[in-house]
Amino acid sequence: MGHNLAINPQTNEYSFFSRKEKAWHGLGTIVEDYPTSAEALRFAGLDYTVEKWPMYTYDPLGRTSDDQHVPEKFATVRTDNYAVLGTVGNDYEVVQNVDAFTFFDSIVGGEGILYETAGALGKGERIFITAKLPGYIRVGKDDFIEKYLFLTTSHDGFGSITAAFTPVRIVCNNTLNAAMRNHTTAIKIRHTANAKERLAVAHKLMGISHKMNDELSGIFNQWAKVRITDHEVKHLIQVAMVPNKETLDNLLSGKNDKLSTVYTNMVDKVYEYAMSAPSQQQETTAGTVFGAYNAVTGYFQNVRNYRDGEAKLQSLLDGTGKLRAQAAFNLCADFAQHLEVNAYINN
C-alpha cells in the first residue's frame, strides 16, 4: 500500500508527524508530548511557504528564443526547493501552511488545542492536520468519544480548503463521521482573495458548538439504550451499505441471488465487525442501535483496505465512507424514533 507522503529532497525526511505512534505506514516523526502549532509545523515538515510565479512558454526545439508570458496563469511554487505544485489563476490566493494552524489556534484561543497529526502529500501540494478539542462525549459508563477537527488544504489549484468536525472513539480509533441531519459538520472554502479571512472565522460556521456536542451525546446515549436484534442489525447494515438503487431494489424484493459478491462480502465484514466489539464497548454496542452505527463507521476506518492513506482520508472525509456513515446515521435515527413512537402509541 502506498503512502504518497511528501519527501523533502533536501533533508530526505517525510513530511509527517504523529503523536505517540506511527500512524501513517510507520513513517514520519514521532513525538511524545502534544506540540505547539509552531512545533507541529516544523515536525511535519510544513514550515515552507508557497508563492505564485508567472508562467512562460518556451520552445523545446529551439525554433525561437522568445519566451511568451501566459496571461492570467501562475505556477504555485515551494520557496524552499522550488518544486512546482500546480497551476492557478489570477484570483487564487495561497493560504500558507502556517495559516491553517493559526485557524486551529483561533478556535480555542490557543488554549487546549492538541495537535495529533499533520503532514503533506505528493510534493507538498496537499496538507492535512488533525487536532483534538478539549473534552469528550461520554456514552454509557466507559465509552468515550473524543472531539477532533480535521483540516485539509491544497496548493495545486484543485479542491477547496475543507475543515470538518470528526468524533473519534478512544478505544479503537474508530472515526464516527456523525454527519447529523440539519447540521454542518464540514465546510469548504474556496481559494479566493478572502480565503484567509474566511479561514480565520470558519469555526463559527461549523457544527462544533456546545449545542452539537450536547445533541451528539444525547443521541449516542439514547442509541446505546435502544435494543436491536441480530437480524435487525444485519438488515440495517445491508441497507446502509447499498451502493445504488438497483441493489436496494433487489435487497428489498428478496432477490439475494442478484446481489453482487462485492456488496455481500462487505456486508458480511461489517456484520462481523458489529459482532466482535472489544469488551470495553460491550455495554454500549452489543445488541444496540449505537453498536449497529458503530459497525458501519468502524468498517471504513479499521477494516476496509484502501489504495493508500490519501484514498482513506478522502473516503472518510468526503467519499464513500462518509456517505455510508451518513446513511447509517439516518437509518439508526429512524429506527430509534420508530421504536419510540410505537412505545408511545402502545402506552
Rank of each mutant, 00 (worst) to 15 (best):
S15H: 07
E340H: 12
H210C: 00
G298T: 05
Q68D: 00
L46N: 11
L149F: 15
N81I: 05
G124I: 09
A274I: 02
V88L: 09
G157F: 10
K196G: 11
V226T: 15
T152F: 01
G122Q: 08
G2F: 10
G62W: 07
R63C: 01
V267L: 03
T175L: 08
V226R: 05
Q68C: 02
D214V: 10
K245R: 12
E283S: 12
N177Y: 09
V242Q: 04
V95T: 14
N342K: 14
L176G: 13
S253P: 00
V303E: 14
S315K: 02
K312C: 07
A6W: 01
T11V: 05
M266V: 08
A240V: 06
E111F: 09
Y82A: 07
K141H: 08
I189H: 03
F290S: 03
V233K: 14
I187E: 11
L252F: 05
Q326F: 07
V270A: 04
P71R: 12
F335H: 13
F101T: 04
E272R: 11
F144W: 07
K52L: 04
I30H: 01
A38W: 00
G124D: 12
T64A: 04
G112T: 06
V88G: 05
I161K: 06
T49P: 00
G2R: 11
M275W: 00
P243I: 08
H338I: 02
Y299I: 09
Q222T: 15
L236S: 11
A277G: 05
F16V: 15
S209G: 15
L114P: 00
G26V: 05
S15L: 05
L5T: 09
R307W: 01
S260N: 03
D257G: 00
F220A: 02
G122C: 04
T130F: 13
Q301F: 04
N305P: 00
Y273A: 08
I189A: 03
M275K: 15
T117H: 13
G62T: 10
I137S: 07
A277I: 07
V168P: 03
M55A: 12
T297F: 02
R324N: 10
A179C: 10
V270G: 03
F17E: 04
R304C: 02
F43M: 10
D33L: 03
V239R: 12
D249E: 14
A186P: 01
Q222R: 15
V267H: 02
L5K: 08
A311R: 04
